[in-house]
Nucleic acid binder design. Structure first.
Lengths: 337, 337
DNA sequence: CACTGGCATGTGGTCGTTCACATGCCGCAG
DNA sequence: CTGCGGCATGTGAACGACCACATGCCAGTG
């Protein structure tokens, strides 16, 4: 053992492989990046050596030299329910297909400092793109104040053009839901909205308001919820006991579940006495009791598109993940009063 | 401009900072790693320079030199429902606190090749630890065949000692659930289990079987489900129409929801005609109709412990995330026959 | 038979950081 | 006034891969 480096902990590098294969490390590099100027015989010898040593290229070194991290960052909200979580999975899956890694950061609280810290965290990792799955207004405001940001994609519903946006037409979805209730003869339709700062919540609320005003139906002030079933339940208990509304459009399925619960607890029949619509179409919605009428969103497709947009630059059809209304048992004709 | 490198794209490095601060790059390094042998005045000058240039240490270079990636890998199942997704969030959150990044890989299909590919993907990134949130038997078998693996943590329910395991006593949880039904007077209790390969599914099934045999109650063959509400529904329709069971213990809340749906569809009253218990206590379970009796697991706590175990080595209290039974409206006394 | 060109392969420098060690400066004691 | 110890700071090499270029070899041509 004249060469001292027989330490058993060190991972093999290109030189080790080269040595074993009897070539120079540059040749090994060529094999890795399959450059064509290589005798097949040489390539095979190198491949064999790599195999034998369990060689793996060192990512840090590659990243350093090429200044490409091959990593996509995901900025998510901690409170995310099924939908966004599914989208994150899809992003990871799609990233795999194009050879990217995924690093996720969750925002716990939504003060500006935490948001900035989260973004910092992603930038530190030299991510080559960020998918923003935390569509709170404040996140976007905070993003503005960064320079040297990598490309961004986001699931948007607004019209802002500063970042690439995958537009899901939340507004249209909300209108469809509201229209459905109106066409069933409901006159007093109430909206349980999402939290203040959320872009989707606003879009859905706008859709509700627009549809009502187009139809000259009375507008009842929307309630600001927090996305949770618990809130839907509490709100439902109060609203249903007091109000004259016969239909409720909830900004997500969780809150709709809470309202269903409230209706049952109050002895109201759904949909005979009260109709309820949700938004998202989480897989469980079909099995609520009664099965929930809701607006379907294809989160997995969204995740896939996100990655596509990030790695291949702008795709021209920058729109078009259309939500669609799924009618199930939780809605029915208005009770004649 | 005698020095040619005024290209506006290059990110500033330690030398740029050093130059601006009038020190050597080593001093900058010391500031970054806050070594103590530094005159406060010098440190301030360096910090000011870093600030001015918007300097960020290059992670790839740090990782290369120190051979530490400061990254934790998460191996997750694509089909994961609420629970594990929540745990992944908690892992990320806890990792943040100790200065680690998180890279997530999802297993789409469970053939050995995909699993191996997923593990490879994590190893390529030089993760310093892997949290296995895909507790399928085959995942662990596949893991065996790797050498040079970083430390692993997993949410386990078995007794294997080859990897650090956070033990959630699924078996005890399942026994508690079954015991609860037995004590309500149910004699024929059926179990809707999780898929074949899942460790948790087995543990819960074992708990069910053990409890029944301890009580000398008749054992009906468990049904193997797939965790989905849809399966619970289909199974429920068949079982409830035909069988003489008066109580069902489902291996997760989604399947329990499906069974509730089936009961309603068949015109059975819950819990008067049939009792149903779930497992996991997802936040929505409280608002199912009727609210679901289930076994609570603290996924967030689990995620936190995972990280703790990974970064600080074995923690001695290697056990002790006890699930606990939450009794709600979906269970009641057995119907007198 | 020497020359050219193309192909296969090797050499040196570089990315941005950290580590081990070398150097310079200061004060204090002999 | 000299010398030594300790502290603050600087220098060189290395981590592992990639790029640009240099080199060697062989066949084909005048």
């Amino acid at each position: 053992m004249s060469t001292p480096e027989t330490s058993r902990t060190r991972a093999p590098n290109m030189r080790d492989v080269a040595h074993l294969a009897g070539v120079s490390y540059q040749t090994v590099s060529r094999v890795i990046n399959n450059s064509e100027a290589l005798r097949p015989e040489t390539r095979d010898r190198v491949l064999a050596a790599m195999e034998q040593l369990h060689y793996r290229p060192n990512r840090a070194a590659q990243a350093l030299k090429s200044s490409r991290s091959r990593t996509i960052g995901v900025l998510a909200s901690i409170r995310d329910s099924y939908g966004p979580a599914r989208a994150v999975q899809a992003i990871e899956e799609a990233a795999l297909a194009v050879g990217f890694y995924v690093s996720t950061v969750h925002i716990t609280v939504t003060d500006e400092a935490s948001i900035a810290a989260a973004i910092d965290r992603l930038i530190e990792q030299d991510v080559e793109g960020i998918a923003v799955m935390a569509p709170q207004q404040r996140v976007f405001e905070t993003l503005q104040s960064f320079d040297g940001l990598p490309p961004l994609v986001t699931l948007r519903s607004g019209h802002e053009n500063d970042v690439d946006a995958l537009w899901v037409d939340q507004l249209a979805g909300a209108r469809a839901a509201t229209a459905h209730l109106a066409e069933l003869g409901h006159e007093y339709i109430r909206h349980l909205a999402g939290p203040q700062d959320w872009i989707e919540a606003d879009a859905r609320m706008q859709g509700y308001l627009l549809e009502l005003s187009d139809r000259d139906l009375p507008t009842l002030p929307p309630i600001r919820g927090d996305w949770t079933a618990g809130f839907g339940y509490d709100a439902g208990l109060q609203l249903m006991a007091a109000s004259d509304a016969t239909a409720y459009f909830c900004s997500n399925d969780e809150m709709a579940l809470g309202m269903l619960h409230a209706a049952h607890a109050l002895g109201l029949r759904v949909p005979e006495d009260v109709s309820i619509v949700g938004f998202d179409d989480i897989p469980m919605a079909e099995h609520f009791w009664p099965p929930l009428t809701t607006v379907h969103q294809d989160f997995a497709e969204l995740g896939r598109r996100c990655v596509q947009l990030l790695v291949s630059g702008r795709d021209d059809t920058t729109v078009d993940v259309q939500p669609r209304l799924i009618v199930r048992g939780s809605t029915g004709p208005a009770r004649r009063s």
